[in-house]
Design a protein around this nucleic acid. Structure first.
Lengths: 173, 173
DNA sequence: CGATTCATGTAACGGGTTACATGATTCG
DNA sequence: CGAATCATGTAACCCGTTACATGAATCG
């Protein structure tokens, strides 16, 4: 909830936008950062306006469906800074779903677990390549930092897997 | 759902257990791996038995509340191996909540964002220390691999933050 | 004798996703 | 002229959490 709000408010900090525009942007440019879906975005924008953080203006171009243009207001900016500082100072305390598999690996013979891990490795490498190709956003913007962080974590993942596979391979001989 | 099932089935692979026992184990020993709560575990165990993956035996010691002892059956073992292989071969495709903050960092003056990041760093270091103190489970078990993975990722997080803070610090001078 | 442990759950709620609905417009 | 794009939503559902309920046994 709060993460969703932070994203939406952050996007509105740059400029007022309507929902469709926001959703397009998220899908096209933020897929590496968030997986927020359209109905969630629309619903969250509604809540934010109900709570008085953003204002709505109706707009219409020609005969197109009317669109709701959302603008962050003073109240919303305060809230945004609050959420932002909280986010920046919070550690990443997450659980990796992949750890579950590792934990039970011993129940499989190495002939099965090793190829599986190799598949995991190669898929992670693919992800890494894809994300490395996302265009850079100016010199040293926050957006870039976020992308660099994701890359750093993926690289850590890859090198961990390579190390582990090597070790497993040795013990199997 | 599937992650929860994988954990529970995996725990039952070692030995038949009752719900309370399982929940205790998760709380005490798997807090670094999963955050599954008791009601979720009980409910998932129910579902697994309904689907015919585990069997239930009622037991009573003295006047203690009767307990349900769950045992994984042949069917369940098949399912377990299936989930395990899928997990082992899947890449970690996750979104870091912390990336959201990074993305919008530019909206704050460095005097505010820098201390926030430093706080994030120090909290991550604390987490790292705590997890490094979890006792080792024999030579090279899967459980250890999982812990080592978590440590590796936390170390990557820490070094990324250190690097970024240093860079920010320089540009602020 | 009060607090903690043992043991299992239910009910309500929250957050988010999927699938569906609508209807005009522009593109090929 | 059919398909994709523009634009916004609703309804049903799923997964999981929090808070609550129960009651005996053991520990300090």
């Amino acid at each position: 909830m709060e993460q969703r709000s932070l994203i939406l408010l952050g996007l509105l900090m740059s400029q007022s936008q309507h929902g469709y525009q926001i959703n397009e942007f998220i899908e096209r440019n933020l897929s590496a950062i968030t997986d927020m879906k359209k109905p969630t975005a629309y619903a969250t924008l509604d809540k934010l306006s109900q709570k008085g953080y953003i204002d709505i203006q109706l707009e219409q171009e020609g005969n197109r469906p009317t669109r709701k243009v959302y603008s962050i207001n003073e109240n919303g900016k305060q809230y945004f800074y609050q959420l932002l500082l909280k986010n920046l100072s919070s550690p990443e305390s997450m659980n990796y779903q992949g750890d579950i598999g590792l934990m039970f690996m011993d129940f499989l013979p190495i002939e099965e677990s090793l190829p599986a891990l190799q598949e995991r490795l190669s898929k992670n490498k693919d992800l890494l390549e894809i994300i490395k190709q996302t265009p850079s956003h100016g010199e040293e913007s926050g957006v870039n930092l976020a992308i660099e962080h994701k890359i750093a974590m993926l690289e850590a993942e890859v090198s961990f897997l390579e190390k582990s596979i090597k070790k497993l391979d040795l013990t199997s001989e």
